[in-house]
Design a binder for these strands. Structure first.
Lengths: 235, 235
DNA sequence: AATGAGGGATTGTTGAACAATTCGTCAATA
DNA sequence: TATTGACGAATTGTTCAACAATCCCTCATT
């Protein structure tokens, strides 16, 4: 290895691309396909996924397919019942309450951590939040409700950035993926997120001003409202 | 199904034992064996786990063993490198910082949630904390440092109960399991937890008095101290 | 209506096989 | 000497076929 005396850095930067060029295992690619199907609302909750059928349809062996199932089961998108098979996760009111309890802790915790966050990281986080808010607003004016939903997801994922913690990021990703399962059981999932755009805008204002405690409280109120709205659907 | 008119309840209670009597899959049992080996500090971080060797040693097929590896990889106890195999997780200083960032959010978040927690749940949580503190103290007087460590783990797991959230519980379990990997690289892992017994006792006092904000701040200070102590070992 | 005995279908697990990839070795080269 | 490239052994990735274990539905029995 030629330790390049001062052409420093650019070799290390290549490491960042390692994941993208990555040979993904077959199991992971299959999981990607199924994950998309599930989070997009096809494959309704409760659907049983037959090893033989899906394996044949996707052209992979049962063993490899079972590996994919494990990946998705760990993300809680599938549930694995011993000797019975895997099913698309079906959530109930308690799950919704738990998901929002977890979100309150993660997201508000991230914002309360913001005072300790590195200046640079904090700035990029604020920008990510701003971008999500603006994307949501412009999508709303175009009546593109699907994009409003994804922008809202991006908003909360950006909130998690203030924790400056990869594990918080990942936990947030998993929670939001699970929540997609919830949205699909609603009557009008398309317009669910629209009313919260103004909340997002207000929270962004707090963040831009460095008023993280105010932002956390506004966020908590938002989460309480969204939770009770969703729980009402499930009971 | 005979809906027993008023012998109510005891049938449902049986459901709690379902997990214990549960037929566990071979993969899960194998994972249990390996998990114990890893968290107890045998199988040092970085060790490569050969599919053939371990499969032969435990008497399971490669396919089943690979399933066990996936389980443990999801718990972050193993890392899976494509086409290279699985290795016992090796943590660095950044991992330690991240783990403690996550813990601060989870544990302090749980305590700040306590004011909203159901009275009954809160009481049992306080009792669980008290039990962990007393177990730790009695183990310390007997010089049983291993039990002091497990009692300390139980203490923090009990803290998570205040969140009243299964997902927080599970996240906490995973974090603590990962942290076990950290403790083993220290010079004297046995006595690491002992100085924190007094902190635990003080925090318990706050919780018993219902002063959750004070408890959260004491806990945050505890976590900061433990983090810097551990990070120092890794750098 | 509850119980119990088939029987078909599906999952759990195994073992073997082959392809793809990594890694160490060693010779060739500048 | 240090770098490069080729070769080969060992390991993982994936598939396939088979059998055991289990679930679930049906039907006969009581």
């Amino acid at each position: 290895m030629t330790t390049n005396e001062r052409g420093i850095g650019w070799v290390e930067e290549l490491g960042a691309e390692r994941a993208s060029l990555g040979r993904a295992s077959t199991a992971r690619r299959v999981a990607d396909v199924l994950r998309a199907r599930i989070t997009e609302g096809r494959l309704p909750p409760g659907t049983r996924l037959s090893e033989e059928d899906i394996g044949a349809a996707l052209g992979v062996s049962r063993n490899t397919l079972r590996e994919s199932f494990r990946l998705l089961a760990h993300e809680r998108l599938l549930v694995h019942e011993f000797n019975r098979g895997v099913f698309v996760r079906k959530l109930d009111a308690d799950d919704v309450r738990d998901l929002y309890a977890f979100r309150r802790i993660l997201e508000c915790g991230a914002l309360r951590h913001a005072t300790r966050t590195d200046e640079a990281v904090r700035r990029t986080a604020v920008e990510a939040v701003r971008r999500a808010v603006e994307d949501g607003e412009s999508s709303a004016t175009q009546g593109n409700w699907v994009d409003v939903g994804t922008a809202n997801m991006a908003f909360h994922q950006a909130i998690a950035l203030f924790a400056q913690s990869p594990r918080v990021d990942e936990a947030m990703r998993h929670v939001l993926a699970e929540l997609r399962l919830v949205f699909h059981v609603m009557a009008a999932p398309q317009t669910f997120h629209e009313p919260y755009l103004t909340d997002n805008r207000r929270i962004l204002g707090h963040l831009a001003d460095g008023e993280f405690e105010a932002a956390a409280q506004a966020l908590a109120a938002y989460l309480d409202a969204a939770e009770s709205q969703l729980v009402a659907v499930f009971e």
